[in-house]
């Protein structure tokens, strides 16, 4: 019997969410005029609303879970972004985050699935799930050591620097009516450091900087899971939520198992 030397990877909950995103590319035949998606979805009005009808643009913002939810509607794309509230982390020496991937991700996907299942959801040609995730480590060396476990095909030594790895590993959809269609699974891997600095400007404009605390480090993973950009038909409206759920599951799989062809 042979034993495979498979590295033990951390639990999925070790990935902390910096940003979550759903991007929807509307069909040319979709007419989007001052949508009420925010109030329909969240039951409240947004804290910030910026409407520019002449440009076909709308930006709305408000709290959701532990972060700030932003809806951006442009003629060619609609973005829902969940990001950290910077003010909430001013005294926190760790990297700001929204919580673990499974915990935060499931709430966000549930909200977005509700949007896509809503009768007022626009017809779409393309749909994407994006995430920026960090996994805290104690040092750059530890970061590269951990990264090497997620990227078994790459040789990374502890003294490596400036490493950035991006790859698309297309998968196949199993969602009914989209079955067998290609799904882009783009992942980007790196190590990041966070330095907290106070920059003080004196009345004459001269800046003075002073570091606060110690630097913190993390493995960084960016996910961009999407339906193909060259698909020119409308996606089946009744399965949009399923497509998104499948994209999220692909993302979880990459965060769990690393870059596996």
């Amino acid at each position: 019997m042979t034993t495979q030397n498979t590295p033990v990877l951390p639990d999925i909950s070790c990935w902390h969410v910096q940003t979550l995103r759903v991007t929807a590319f509307p069909s040319p035949s979709a007419t989007i005029s001052q949508p009420k998606w925010w109030s329909e979805l969240l039951g409240t009005e947004p804290e910030v609303r910026n409407l520019r009808p002449a440009r076909g643009e709308l930006i709305e913002k408000g709290p959701f879970d532990k972060g700030t939810l932003t809806l951006q509607v442009f003629p060619l794309r609609i973005d829902w972004n969940l990001t950290v509230i910077p003010e909430a982390h001013l005294d926190d020496p760790d990297m700001p985050h929204l919580g673990s991937l499974p915990e935060t991700g499931e709430k966000f996907i549930k909200l977005m699935s509700d949007w896509l299942s809503n009768a007022s959801a626009p017809r779409l040609q393309r749909l994407a799930f994006g995430a920026v995730l960090n996994q805290a480590v104690g040092s750059p060396e530890e970061g590269y050591h951990l990264l090497a476990k997620y990227l078994p095909e790459i040789r990374l030594s502890p003294e490596s620097t400036d490493f950035l790895y991006q790859i698309n590993r297309p998968g196949k959809s199993a969602v009914p009516s989209s079955e067998g269609r290609s799904i882009n699974r783009l992942s980007k891997w790196s190590c990041v450091a966070m330095h907290r600095t106070i920059v003080q400007y004196f009345p004459d404009g001269t800046p003075s900087t002073s570091p606060v605390g110690v630097a913190s480090y993390a493995c960084n993973l960016e996910l961009d899971i999407s339906t193909p950009g060259d698909f020119k038909e409308d996606l089946p409206q009744q399965t949009l939520a399923q497509i998104l759920q499948e994209q999220y599951n692909f993302g979880i799989d990459i965060a769990l198992r690393g870059d596996i062809a």
Binding site: L90, M194, Y201, P207, V212
Partner: peptide
């Protein structure tokens, strides 16, 4: 007491840039 603008900058860097 006069006030001065402050910029608190958290820089997340992959080495350089």
């Amino acid at each position: 007491m006069s006030t001065v603008p402050l910029l608190i900058d958290w820089d997340l860097s992959r080495s350089k840039p």
